[in-house]
């Protein structure tokens, strides 16, 4: 260490912590900071652009449909607002999209459509399903005695309820009517992600299976028919059809035996 240099450090020199704070604030807000005034703007601009473009790139990659709905100016305004106002706690780059979802829940930007956060959640779901760390092995299910099997949902299947038909929103269809929409997202044994639109009864069946530990399919469907005041035969027949499809898609699995 050069001692002369250290002697020259005056007692009034600023704490490095204060400078770091101003530097990061400048990158976020692009506003001038008093202790950075001696730095050429073209150098600060490298940081401003690198950081903003990096964040924008992650968000655009995760939410391509959402991005398409805005003009360039509004989109940049949205990303900048996120960068300034949201404190990202995740160290993981794949979770920047999750941080953005949390931000969308709280933002008051006027130009955002009412369905923005629900659409964003739907887009995020596809990424989440793709990389979810599953702890379950997949086993083929014997369909011949479906009614007596004890089934539950796979940990790589999710049921979702939205207030809008989020899966149909696009720049050409950007003003959807409110309409309760049930969807199931799944990742199959080949690790491919897919989704299906489901009806309200299927949604309830998914819910019942998700929590199921010991009941047979017949019992679950019988309970469901009673709760919903529906004819038992119709629920049994319809339910088994849905289950056959779900087994093919890898949405459900057998309850693991406790032995």
């Amino acid at each position: 260490m050069d001692s002369e240099q250290l002697d020259n450090v005056s007692e009034t020199t600023l704490d490095f912590k204060q400078i770091q704070k101003e530097f990061s604030l400048h990158i976020r807000t692009t506003k001038a900071q008093s202790n950075l005034s001696d730095i050429e703007d073209r150098r600060l601009n490298i940081y401003r652009e690198l950081f903003f473009n990096n964040i924008e790139n992650f968000i655009a990659g995760a939410f391509p449909v959402l991005k398409e709905l805005f003009n360039e100016q509004d989109w940049e305004c949205l990303v900048r607002d996120f960068f300034i106002k949201h404190e990202c706690n995740s160290p993981y780059f794949l979770e920047i999209s999750e941080e953005f979802l949390a931000y969308l829940e709280t933002t008051t930007l006027k130009f955002l459509p009412a369905y923005s956060s629900q659409l964003a959640h739907w887009e995020w779901m596809e990424l989440y399903a793709d990389v979810y760390e599953s702890s379950e092995a997949t086993c083929p299910i014997d369909m011949s005695e479906l009614e007596n099997l004890r089934l539950t949902t796979s940990d790589t299947a999710w049921h979702l309820a939205y207030e809008y038909p989020v899966h149909k929103i696009s720049p050409e269809h950007s003003d959807p009517e409110k309409q309760v929409t049930f969807l199931a997202v799944y990742r199959n044994a080949d690790l491919e992600v897919g989704f299906i639109e489901i009806n309200p009864l299927s949604y309830l069946l998914f819910e019942a299976l998700k929590n199921n530990q010991s009941q047979t399919i017949d019992l679950i469907l019988t309970d469901l028919a009673q709760q919903q005041n529906m004819p038992l035969e119709a629920v049994l027949t319809g339910g088994k059809q849905i289950l056959s499809q779900w087994i093919e898609l890898g949405i459900i699995r057998e309850v693991p035996s406790t032995q």
């Binding site: 450090v9 400078i19 770091q20 990096n54 964040i55 404190e87 990202c88």
Partner: peptide, 21 residues
């Protein structure tokens, strides 16, 4: 380097070259 200040910023910023740092 540092890449966070009251939250992650996902890129690298220069630490001021000081004794305290």
């Amino acid at each position: 380097s540092y890449c966070s200040d009251q939250g992650h910023m996902y890129d690298l910023m220069p630490i001021p070259f000081t004794q305290d740092a």
